Simulated scan of single mutants.
Amino acid sequence: MTDPADMIVPLLREMRAENLEQHEQTRALVRALDKRLGGVEDAQKSYRQALTADTLLSKLVTGEFEERIEALENKVRELEGHK
């Protein structure tokens, strides 16, 4: 029968190898998650930029519309004043 003291070093080597393997799997998983997260962050950034552009365009269109309405109101006031 093998002496238990002779089994300790091989068991420790085996445990170390398994531990290293699990660490590498964890690192690979973290890298994959970082890559996916980066894609999600890029999509969110693009979405925010699109919303900002849409809001800016809406403000420009609304501002132009309000200016045109104001010009028409001024013309109506002028016409009403000439009567």
Score class of each variant (00 low, 15 high):
residue 1 M to V: 11
residue 1 M to H: 07
residue 2 T to S: 06
residue 4 P to V: 00
residue 5 A to Y: 09
residue 7 M to L: 15
residue 8 I to V: 13
residue 8 I to S: 04
residue 9 V to T: 04
residue 11 L to D: 14
residue 12 L to P: 00
residue 12 L to R: 05
residue 13 R to S: 06
residue 13 R to C: 05
residue 13 R to P: 00
residue 14 E to G: 00
residue 16 R to Q: 06
residue 16 R to S: 10
residue 17 A to G: 05
residue 17 A to K: 14
residue 17 A to W: 08
residue 17 A to R: 12
residue 19 N to R: 10
residue 19 N to S: 14
residue 19 N to V: 14
residue 20 L to T: 11
residue 20 L to N: 12
residue 21 E to A: 14
residue 22 Q to R: 13
residue 24 E to R: 12
residue 24 E to M: 07
residue 24 E to T: 04
residue 25 Q to A: 10
residue 26 T to P: 01
residue 26 T to S: 11
residue 26 T to E: 08
residue 27 R to V: 06
residue 29 L to N: 13
residue 29 L to K: 15
residue 30 V to I: 15
residue 31 R to D: 13
residue 32 A to V: 05
residue 34 D to F: 02
residue 34 D to S: 14
residue 36 R to K: 12
residue 38 G to D: 01
residue 38 G to F: 00
residue 39 G to N: 02
residue 42 D to R: 09
residue 43 A to I: 01
residue 43 A to K: 03
residue 44 Q to A: 11
residue 47 Y to G: 01
residue 47 Y to H: 07
residue 49 Q to N: 10
residue 49 Q to F: 09
residue 50 A to E: 09
residue 51 L to M: 11
residue 52 T to N: 03
residue 54 D to F: 04
residue 54 D to E: 15
residue 55 T to D: 07
residue 59 K to I: 02
residue 60 L to V: 11
residue 60 L to N: 06
residue 61 V to P: 00
residue 62 T to A: 14
residue 65 F to E: 04
residue 65 F to G: 02
residue 67 E to V: 13
residue 69 I to Y: 04
residue 69 I to D: 10
residue 70 E to M: 06
residue 73 E to S: 06
residue 73 E to D: 09
residue 74 N to D: 12
residue 75 K to C: 05
residue 75 K to R: 13
residue 75 K to D: 14
residue 76 V to Q: 08
residue 77 R to Y: 10
residue 77 R to T: 10
residue 77 R to S: 15
residue 81 G to A: 14
residue 81 G to W: 07
residue 81 G to P: 01
residue 81 G to K: 09
residue 82 H to F: 14
residue 82 H to L: 10
residue 83 K to V: 13
